[in-house]
Design a binder for these strands. Sequence first.
DNA 1: GGGCTAATTGATAATGAATGTCAAAACCGT
DNA 2: ACGGTTTTGACATTCATTATCAATTAGCCC
Lengths: 132, 132
Amino acid sequence: MTRQRAAVSEALDRLDDFRSAQQIHDVMRQGGDTIGLATVYRTLQALADHGDVDVLRTEDGESHYRRCERDEHHHHLVCRGCGRTIEIDGPTVESWANTVGAAHGFTGIEHTIELFGTCADCAAAAAARAGD
Amino acid sequence: MTRQRAAVSEALDRLDDFRSAQQIHDVMRQGGDTIGLATVYRTLQALADHGDVDVLRTEDGESHYRRCERDEHHHHLVCRGCGRTIEIDGPTVESWANTVGAAHGFTGIEHTIELFGTCADCAAAAAARAGD
DNA sequence: GGGCTAATTGATAATGAATGTCAAAACCGT
DNA sequence: ACGGTTTTGACATTCATTATCAATTAGCCC
Ligand SMILES: [Zn+2]
Ligand SMILES: [Zn+2]
Ligand SMILES: [Zn+2]
Ligand SMILES: [Zn+2]
């Protein structure tokens, strides 16, 4: 464990939503940390491999990282407006994925499931903006 | 409708699995078509916007395109070995996505669902390779 | 602590998919 | 065929991510 890895881990604890490696690097620099961008990339990937952070591929192909509350397998409901993220588990979809995979003779099924929408706050803000 | 767009559409008809824009461009060139890479990118994106082709973001961030049999909303079960793709519909997951989104006050729910696995042929090939 | 070796760091260069540029070519209604 | 509009495509550019590799650091034994 190095000073830099500990710093990335702490930064992730402070941040709530999914952030790109570059955003995390910026935040750390702003907070006084001395760390290189390459190290942030490497550390985040290592954390992701170990399952310590979750990765979300954004619509434009960037990888965003987030330390999640629960360690168990789960999915995400992300607000398109503010990025607020809610952790979701769906026992039904888990078994559905395996069942439908097996039905077609596939083994070693993995799945990618993410939900996107507009949260109540952002919807209210949009309505206020339209109504003034 | 231009000669190039028609050619891309025909190429997509001939190809079965998800291919990248560059792979499609290569195949077309090999087949004697004269077309620029930028045009292939533009055409594929336009087709994707119109819902005429499906897009799959691969693990390394590339966009792969495929003309699907059915026009209606559906998802994919993709073999990690050979790329064979099966179209899936899951009424349960569709309603699940909307329900869980609404339960958290989210509106305008969209979802990303993809299944990956090893098809029976690829599993058999792997077993034969291990057992010789 | 001091020294030693292997792992890590980080400034920089390199990669590569995707997009922007813009003059030339193709399209289409007349 | 003609002229205005759209499309094309070779090329340059962007930008996230990865590779490089000398300098630094961590971990460990004495
Ligand atoms: Zn929001
Ligand atoms: Zn799941
Ligand atoms: Zn297969
Ligand atoms: Zn669906």
